[in-house]
């Protein structure tokens, strides 16, 4: 591939204290793919995303976004954190949260204006939440909260999207809406990286996958890397293989 990769991670090692969370991870994400990061709990999936975003200082290694360090490419990247990391009883409205996606473009001190709110409303329309724009955020269901976060990322109008477990705890309608949205992002040339938990749906939703368990086990097109052997390497003995060749994690 001669194109500049959307994300290029090389030799990334991250440790919390003495405990390594990621060991020497190399990862190349080609532009325009819809990629899942899968792996067991504690595999370092969230850490990988945070390290790409510069939220965590790595012990070693380097991250490039479209060929240059994250610091200078920040505006090209949008981030959807895990839904449960914020306080949903915070006194603010749906529209206000989505408008936060514009803060990066606004920079320090400048306040969001009419244009920013219009963009936020457009993003809310894309996730089917226009009517709830003025709701207080504590009145949202889990799926609606997730869609608010997605809308906030859409407002950033980025070319690379990093999403941490957007499917966790959402209803079926929201799940379909998110899948639809992810595909539309890919169709418009965006790169999307999603931390994903449900092995059943990886092949259906994504075209690219990275298997991670402290080390990178495999990364590439889903049909190449999503093999029984790789899954076994990633999950140890905890993967049961169903008759039709689909796999599921057995607790």
């Amino acid at each position: 591939m001669s194109e500049t990769p959307a994300i290029e991670v090389s030799d990334l090692t991250v440790a919390y204290g003495a405990t390594p969370v990621l060991w020497d991870v190399d990862l190349t994400v080609p532009p325009g793919v819809l990629m899942a990061i899968v792996g067991p709990n504690g595999a370092g999936k969230t850490t990988l995303i945070k390290a790409i975003l510069g939220l965590i200082r790595p012990a070693a290694g380097r991250v490039l976004v479209q060929g240059r360090p994250y610091d200078v490419q920040r505006r090209l990247v949008a981030y959807v954190p895990q839904r449960r990391t914020v306080d949903w009883d915070f006194p603010t409205s749906v529209l206000d949260v989505v408008t936060m996606g514009r803060y990066g473009a606004l920079g320090w001190i400048r306040r969001p204006g009419r244009r920013d709110r219009r963009l936020a409303l457009e993003a809310l329309e894309q996730v089917g939440m226009t009517e709830l724009a003025h709701r207080q955020i504590s009145q949202l269901s889990g799926g609606q909260q997730q869609r608010v976060f997605l809308a906030r990322a859409l407002v950033q109008d980025a070319s690379v999207y990093l999403m941490d477990e957007p499917f966790a705890g959402v209803d079926a309608t929201t799940e379909r809406a998110i899948v639809h949205l992810l595909r539309r992002l890919r169709e418009t040339g965006r790169t999307v990286v999603v931390v994903h938990h449900d092995l059943q749906t990886v092949e259906e939703y994504f075209d690219w996958a990275t298997l991670l368990n402290v080390r990178r086990i495999a990364s590439g097109p889903v049909d190449e890397v999503f093999t029984e052997q790789n899954l076994r390497l990633t999950y140890g003995g905890r993967v049961a293989f169903l008759a039709e060749g689909r796999s599921a994690v057995v607790p």
């Binding site: 975003l53 920040r74 981030y79 914020v86 915070f90 803060y103 606004l106 001190i109």
Partner: peptide, 22 residues
Amino acid sequence: VLLWKEFKLLTFDPDFGASLGF
């Protein structure tokens, strides 16, 4: 008042704020 937007972001979602470069 001056840093209203930044303080709101810090209070609600500091990680997201950091990812935006604040």
